[in-house]
Design a protein around this nucleic acid. Structure first.
Lengths: 344, 344
DNA sequence: TTGAAAGCGTTACCAG
DNA sequence: CTGGTAACGCTTTCAA
């Protein structure tokens, strides 16, 4: 294992008995190089397996050829799919993805600030940031950023200047509630997600909006549901309090729904046909539990985010106004929302 | 949106009425700086929210502070968990991960060669590469690499010089077969995976080895199983050919097992209690299907790979001999391997 | 204790 | 068509 010192453009120039400038021009296909020297240089280049030092290039050109992707460490499957979407959009342009996981709220905010300013990447995709991030202004001198599966809720924040890609939570929630409505159900519970993520708050708001104007309907919202344990706790609570069960339980995600359903099953509650349960994410669990669930366009979420970012990174691109894209979801209606006697 | 030109160390020096050298020393906590100037510089640094340009640093220091991670685009959940393991090991040292997905065999080999030599990263973790990669030598001047969930099978390849982290397929397979053996089962089928991945071939070999010496046992191996469709096809084949069903079907992964089980169910075959079916990966599907399955130490796979790589990257580290780590798996025995009348 | 200067590998602007 | 030179932002001798 001999340590070969790497071939630099300057060393190539020496070998080819010419100047670094010329070699650089050959590499960039500059037309005003004589065919003779071009061939000679190319030959040496190949013989020595020259690979340009991308760092030096980046330092000179002010572009790194990399974009950052920051995610929370929750929901690994979701993240991986979004990442593949980003890859789909970036691979053609040989843009590389620098990935980081944040551990907790403060960590996310800190890492985002760092990645936006440390010059390691040309832009940043922020996946599902904690809403607390929007309380601070984006750091000065930040690289372009795109919010993926998120958007600032209040108008006060400077983060409105950055592009965002979200899903149409409103439409999905309307479909879920509408599905119940067709069956004249009257009491709904929404086991909402954490208070500090966009999607959670958007679905919460969409739930309230979907119920507005439905006379005689009742609804409750409980916050902070993320994992099956949260669903379990709420399900036990429902059983313990003695009140009649709701007609429908709309859960923030499949994990929560799984917790609820499994708890009911364990307690011997015959909920199927009487209590509609819905999840969100259309995971494998939803498939197996025959659970009605909302499918997120994960791949498109990543792809679109990357496309917006790349567009903004184009050198001559006019500084377009911030764009807010909302992607459609797909609701999979399954057995968990069938009421007794009704058909699929 | 005014485009602020970024704060450089030189500009800070000017503002602090001192030299770039001094500022650089303050940043690196050089002890021989007077407390007075130290404070003054720190003040300016903070006021201007200075962030060092990591590119310039990297160019000077010859280290990028990044490691590459190359994966196939299959099995996104697995990849994400390995990635989190890598993150676990690298975040303390502020090493960043550059992630790429290969689309197909040729693409993987090409991307690996590129990432090993383009200088963008200090080292590379190759997740589950196609075995074809080992037919070529590693490129000259390659950065250090670690094989994750893989290892060259034949002794001929120079790839044996690189560290590798695998799982103990042999032990897991022994446990599966042994589980059957306790029940004196005689005819086993292994629905093996693709021919060109290490894990697949290792499990294949382990299956054969586990059966060696068991007199009177019969076994068949079929290759190329990766997704549920493959399992479906094989299951239909078994039913169609008229032969009696085997006593056990050991599948390459849970998807394949799912395909087999669902096909049997759909065809009305009462397999539970008569035909043992096993999967691999311990996915959500395995949980729901009550399927015996092998759990991979995904997080540790990533963490260990990163640790090996970082160790090799240490500037003064002696050039240690290549290491081959094998991590233990956990076999989850479930209902799918219970025979009629036997207890868990 | 501080500053000047060289240099990491590349590109781009001028000259010639 | 080609070569010298400066510059990207930083670190690190070497002097002072």
């Amino acid at each position: 294992m001999k340590t070969e010192q790497p071939m630099t453009l300057t060393r190539i120039a020496a070998l080819a008995k010419t100047s670094p400038s010329t070699v650089s021009r050959v590499l960039s296909d500059d037309p005003r190089i004589s065919e003779a020297t071009r061939q000679r240089v190319l030959q040496i280049l190949k013989e020595n397996r020259y690979q340009p030092n991308l760092l030096a290039r980046a330092l000179k050109g002010g572009k790194t050829g990399q974009i950052g992707v920051l995610a929370t460490n929750i929901g690994s499957g979701f993240f991986a799919e979004v990442l593949q979407g980003i890859d789909f959009a970036t691979r053609a342009q040989a843009i590389h993805m620098v990935c980081s996981f944040a551990h907790g709220i403060a960590d996310y905010i800190e890492m985002a600030a760092d990645m936006l300013t440390n010059g390691r990447t040309d832009g940043l995709i922020l996946i599902d940031p904690p809403l607390e991030m929007f309380d601070r202004k984006p750091p000065v001198g930040a690289t372009p950023a795109v919010l993926c599966a998120s958007r600032p809720l209040r108008r006060s924040s400077d983060w409105h200047q950055v592009d965002s890609v979200t899903v149409d939570n409103k439409d999905a929630m309307n479909q879920l509630v509408g599905h119940m409505a067709g069956r004249r159900r009257a009491y709904l519970i929404h086991l909402a997600g954490p208070r500090n993520t966009y999607d959670s708050q958007a679905r919460r708001a969409a739930f309230k909006a979907a119920l507005r104007g439905r006379k005689g309907w009742r609804a409750t919202i409980e916050d902070g549901h993320l994992i099956d344990g949260d669903g379990r706790r709420s399900a036990k609570q429902m059983l313990k309090c003695g009140h009649p069960l709701p007609d429908a339980i709309l859960c923030f995600n499949d994990s929560t729904a799984q917790g609820v359903a499994e708890t009911f099953d364990a307690e011997g509650v015959a909920w199927r046909g009487r209590v509609a349960i819905t999840g969100w994410d259309n995971s494998t669990a939803a498939h197996f539990m025959d659970l009605t669930s909302v499918q997120m366009p994960t791949h498109d979420l990543g792809r679109t985010s990357a496309e917006l970012l790349l567009e903004r990174l184009k050198p001559n691109g006019p500084i377009a106004a911030p764009r807010q894209v909302a992607l459609p979801t797909t609701v999979h209606f399954r057995g968990s929302t069938l009421y007794r006697g009704s058909k699929p």
